[in-house]
Design a protein around this nucleic acid. Structure first.
Lengths: 218, 218
DNA sequence: CGCAGGCATCAGGGTTTTCCTGATAGTTGT
DNA sequence: ACAACTATCAGGAAAACCCTGATGCCTGCG
C-alpha cells in the first residue's frame, strides 16, 4: 500500500459532472483532489502548478482537445500520469490517447468504483483500460501489424482538420473556401483527402466524427 | 420547510455521472434518491413503480428522447415534477421541455448547489430555470407572440423525424429511399421540409441537431 | 546536395445531387 | 364538408461533388 495520499487533478467541462466526480473521490481516504479545471487552458496551468499524481481528463473540452492537453503535459509534467475519462469509445480517439502517453482510459458508462480502481492502479505505475477500450487497442494493434496502409487510419494534417471543423459546423465548400481565403477546388481536394483518410464518405458521419473527436463541439 | 424528505429518481445514461449526482444529492439530508435509471424505458418503469416527488432527467438517453419520457410521464404520473438536466441549452429543446410540462431546466455547466436549489424549489411547487434557459424561454415566448408563423419552429412529423435520423446517421437520399422503400423524390421533399421547418440548411447542422435532440446518438 | 514524400494549392470536365415548383391522395379535426 | 397536414411523387434547372492530374513548397534523409 501507499503511505501518501494520491493527489488528483480533475478536468471536465461540466461543473456538475466535475463536482459529482469529486464527491465520489472524496469518499476514498487515500485520494485527494488538489484542483479542478473546466478547460484545457486551466488544466495545463493547474497541472504545472500543483503537479498531481493523477490527471483525470475528459476529452471534450471547450477550448483545446483533451488529446492535445495530454500530449503537452506528457512532456511538460512527465511525472503526472494521465487517466482519460470519456463518454465515447471512438477508435481513433483511443489510439490517439495511447499514442500521446495516457496511462488509462475509462468510459463514463462505467461504474464509479472502476474510476477509483483505475486511479489506484495507475498511481501504482501500471496502466488501466476499460474492457471495451482494451479491445479497441488490441484490434488496432493487430491491424497496424497486419494490414496494408491503405486501410489504416491516417492522421489529418492541420489544414485538413481545419476544413473538417468548418464542414462539421455546417459550412459548405464555397463558404469554407471564403473563410479560409482559398479556392473552392482546394477545399474539394481537402474534403476528398479527409474522406479517404478517415474512410468516411458522408457529411453526416464526418460531423459525428468531428464531434466525437473534439474537433468541434455540439 | 418540508417535513418529509424529497424523494428523487435520477435518470442519466452515464453511470459515472449518475453516481456522481447521487453522491452530491446524498449530502443533503432532506433529499433521498429512491431509484436511478440509465434509459428512457427503465426511467418510465421506475417512475411508475416508485412515484418520486422529483424526476431529475437527462435529455440524451440511449433509447428514447428525454422529451418523450417527460411527455409520457406527465400524463401517467402527473404528481411527479420533472427537472431537466441537460448538457445543452438548445432553443428547441428548451421550448419542447417547457411544452411537455417540465417544472425546471438546468445545465450541467451549472454548479451542483444549483441542482439542489432547483430540486427544493420545484418540490415546493414552483419552477426553476437556469438563467440562460430562462432567457431562451422569454425570447421564444416573445417571438411566438410577435412573429409570423414562418419563423416559428414547427414540429416534425413522424416520417420527417425518421428521414432526419437516417440522414444524420450518414445515409444519402438514395439510401434513405431504399431503406424506407419510397422514391428518392419523396425523400428530397421530406428533407426540404425538414430544413424549412428547422431553419437549418446543411447536413452537418442537421446532424448536430439530431444528436442534440436525441433523434440519433453519437 | 538532391530528391522522395507529404502538404497546400488549383483546374477541367463528367456525374450526381440538390433545389424549386407543382401535383395527388389519404387523414384528421371541427 | 372543408381546411390543414401528411405522405407520396416528378420535371428541369442549378449546384455540388468526384476523378484525374498538376504545381510549388518544405522537410527529412542518405
Amino acid at each position: 500500500m501507499r503511505l501518501m495520499p494520491i493527489r488528483i487533478l480533475v478536468v471536465d467541462d461540466h461543473q456538475m459532472v466535475r463536482e459529482g466526480l469529486i464527491s465520489l473521490l472524496a469518499k476514498e481516504h487515500d485520494l485527494i483532489v488538489v484542483a479542478e479545471a473546466e478547460s484545457g487552458e486551466s488544466a495545463m496551468r493547474l497541472c504545472r502548478e500543483t503537479v498531481p499524481d493523477i490527471l483525470v481528463l475528459d476529452l471534450t473540452l471547450p477550448d483545446i482537445s483533451g488529446i492535445e492537453v495530454a500530449r503537452t503535459l506528457r512532456s511538460d509534467c512527465p511525472s503526472v500520469r494521465i487517466l482519460i475519462l470519456s463518454m465515447h469509445s471512438d477508435r481513433r480517439f483511443v489510439t490517439e490517447a495511447v499514442t500521446v502517453g495516457a496511462s488509462g482510459y475509462i468510459l463514463k458508462d462505467a461504474a464509479s468504483n472502476e474510476l477509483i480502481r483505475a486511479i489506484r492502479t495507475i498511481a501504482s505505475g501500471e496502466t488501466f483500460f476499460s474492457p471495451t477500450v482494451a479491445g479497441i487497442i488490441v484490434t488496432s494493434y493487430i491491424e497496424s501489424r497486419q494490414q496494408s496502409q491503405s486501410a489504416t487510419l491516417q492522421p489529418l494534417s492541420p489544414r485538413e482538420t481545419e476544413v473538417l471543423r468548418l464542414l462539421a459546423q455546417g459550412q459548405n465548400t464555397k463558404e469554407i473556401a471564403h473563410t479560409l481565403s482559398i479556392s473552392s477546388k482546394t477545399v474539394e481536394t481537402f474534403r476528398a483527402n479527409i474522406m479517404r483518410k478517415l474512410n468516411i464518405f458522408s457529411v453526416a458521419e464526418l460531423t459525428r466524427y468531428a464531434i466525437r473527436t473534439g474537433i468541434t463541439s455540439l
